[in-house]
Design a binder for these strands. Structure first.
Lengths: 213, 213
DNA sequence: CTAAAAACTGATCGTGCGATCAAAAATTTC
DNA sequence: GAAATTTTTGATCGCACGATCAGTTTTTAG
């Protein structure tokens, strides 16, 4: 009975092991999104996956470990969804609007993913357990947005707001799509509109609508 | 041994009863803000208040009931702080900026209050327990802001955004002050700046800066 | 086919929780 | 100051959780 609890190892994994781990992670995401993080236990995840509780312990070092892998999976999926939709967008404004639209689109494409993530983050903050790993994943998500905002300020497209604050507010606004019951399309349009106005430079070097009269 | 568990009764309350209830509520707020909601139990609140666990059960019908009263107290305190600072502010823009500044100022004045409230809201959402009462209190908070935004749109000061979305985003942005470690003054300025740009009408009837060149 | 390894089961353990309550202490009432 | 009432204590209850593990089944390998 060899221990499977060395989690992040990327080395040899049997077919069964990969499948089970994936199944358990997916069921955990479903359970958290549907029932709420506080209502989810390992037993309920096991029941949903139609396995006994011991299997989870067999493949994961503990609840902590499972949740960490759930986060990793959600972040990776989200990144794979958003990145190609933003990459190469040239004026920073287009990149920002693409980022917002893609992020809200991710909620529409994987309805349970961001919901689960937001719940996990909130619960871990409420339990005062925010590992360096958590911090790092959150930073990855913020970094893409931060870079867009900085480049827009450098080019003069954006006005002189504090980037860290704007980043936080945009991320929180996007997360609203996961916890509120909104139509993704219109909601994305609303956010795009809101932050387009919030970020754009007063109107000088940039050509376009310069005000009437 | 008469039962004290009829909570919302506003009738006769002995001096001791009022004092104890207030003490317990205050200790609960402290504990939640410091330790995080997930880490707080009735036993820890009792220890902090230097009383035995039974006293809490004596004055409150249960944990649910205590938390509900904590919420009520925080909302009432916040409303008492923000309302007079917004009331009478004439152009909607001034009212909006005053609302944001006052809300962030509340976090500075009562550092633990909004933090506790945000944690409680997140945890109750994660446990899928959102009573009509919860909803009603949240609505009260949003209503003041909603009215400001609507009046600003009616007067033409604000552009044509969707009020419900703008309200949500502004509230979330303010709550950031409670969960992030920010300097309230500069942060309030940032938010005021952000949402001033996000809400203002393009520039026509309203006099002022109409763009250079 | 057989033996070893891997995968899985389900009962069981310890823990901390919210809640309860009989008894004790403090306070109020007459 | 005695009786009645209110307030407080701290032990105890049942419960659900995460974790463990001895034992069973399934898969793999020679």
């Amino acid at each position: 009975m060899r221990s499977k609890i060395s989690t992040t190892d990327q080395d040899r994994r049997s077919f069964i092991e990969q499948a089970r781990r994936g199944q358990i992670i997916e069921c955990a995401i479903q359970a958290i999104a549907e029932l709420g993080y506080a209502e989810v236990s390992l037993a309920k995840i096991a029941r949903r996956a139609q396995i006994s509780t011991g299997v989870i312990s067999y493949y994961f070092a503990g609840k902590e470990d499972l949740i960490r892998e759930v986060m990793t999976h959600v972040y990776a999926t989200g990144d794979a969804f958003v990145r190609p939709r933003v990459e190469g967008k040239a004026p920073a404004r287009d990149a920002l609007l693409a980022f917002i639209e893609a992020s809200v689109g991710f909620v529409a494409a994987y309805p349970q993913y961001l919901t689960a993530m937001v719940e996990i983050i909130a619960s871990r903050r409420a339990a005062r357990v925010v590992s360096p790993q958590d911090q790092a994943m959150g930073d990855i998500r913020r970094d893409a947005l931060t870079r867009i905002l900085q480049s827009g300020q450098a080019s003069g497209e954006f006005r002189a707001f504090r980037v860290s604050v704007m980043t936080d507010v945009i991320i929180e606004a996007i997360d609203l799509a996961a916890i509120r019951d909104v139509e993704p399309g219109p909601f994305a349009k609303d956010l795009v509109d809101l932050f387009d106005h919030a970020t754009r430079a007063p109107a000088e070097a940039a050509p376009g609508i310069t005000g009437a009269a």
